[in-house]
Amino acid sequence: MTIAASPDSFFYPHRHLLGIEGLTPAEITGLLDLADDAAEANRQVNKKQDTLRGRTQINLFFEASTRTQSSFELAGKRLGADVMNMSVGSSSIKKGETVIDTAMTLNAMRPDILVVRHYAAGAVELLAQKVSCSVINAGDGSHEHPTQALLDALTIRRNKGRIEGLTVVICGDVLHSRVARSNIILLNALGAQVRIIAPSTLLPPFAERLGAKIFTSMDEGLKGADIIMMLRLQLERMSGTFVPSVREYFRFFGLDHEKLKLAKPDALIMHPGPMNRGVEIDSAVADDHRSVISEQVEMGVAVRMAILQAFGQHLQNQ
């Protein structure tokens, strides 16, 4: 089986995917449609396609990642590309090479697609300006993580049939979260009502201007929610710097069945992973029948195939 949506029905007009910012609702929907088809293809026995045969995809990760990197790798391989993984954190940075030099070096090897994760906001865009291939942002600092937002949207759409009009709550460390930023932009573009719940210490300044309603209490923020997205809280932020302790965080900002009752009965529970069970989410809630956390991982591969396939259109046009 091949991906059904033809290049004629949807054309992705950009060379890169650096963020959700700048995409039109139609482009987002087009990518989600492609991803829907990819998701079906991934459930077949034979998952291999040849859309990207002969193309080279390099996964360039300046920051450790397990699931995003393997998801991109699998997506590229299923579309027939040659995929190479590079973890730069351990080699070039220590030798003092700059991001741009690393990019130029890789560019000289003539890849077709670079998938880049970097710990600094804006670094992927900087790199994209210096290379002649397509670049996908796999997460830059606390700025954007567009494929995560797309896979979240796909998961929501497949379960709820729509995104428009839904109340989506994003809860946790929004300050440091690229997932939250990309999601807020995408969900607003598709007409959802977005809320943020976090202690003030984990909110970006002027967070309400990002397009979300701000709550500092779960009791208020969870009322009537259709979707609850929990964010990961890094360990080093839990002991008195941003939050007093794990037990206090879990008591006031962790999702347990008691707080879950405030949301709609059929609310979806989401988490971009990796989870801290007992910190931001109760173990039983993570495994609840309303939890779609595993489906998010499945949709991750589909969404990444969709964007790679969209790039394939450009590659053929050259």
């Binding site: 007093p244 302790s245 037990r247 206090e248 008591r251």
Partner: peptide, 15 residues
């Protein structure tokens, strides 16, 4: 307000 009154880590204000 801070652990041990050291002025470094905030205490569990909510609890």
């Amino acid at each position: 307000a801070t652990r041990g009154l050291k002025g470094e880590e905030m205490t569990e204000i909510g609890l």
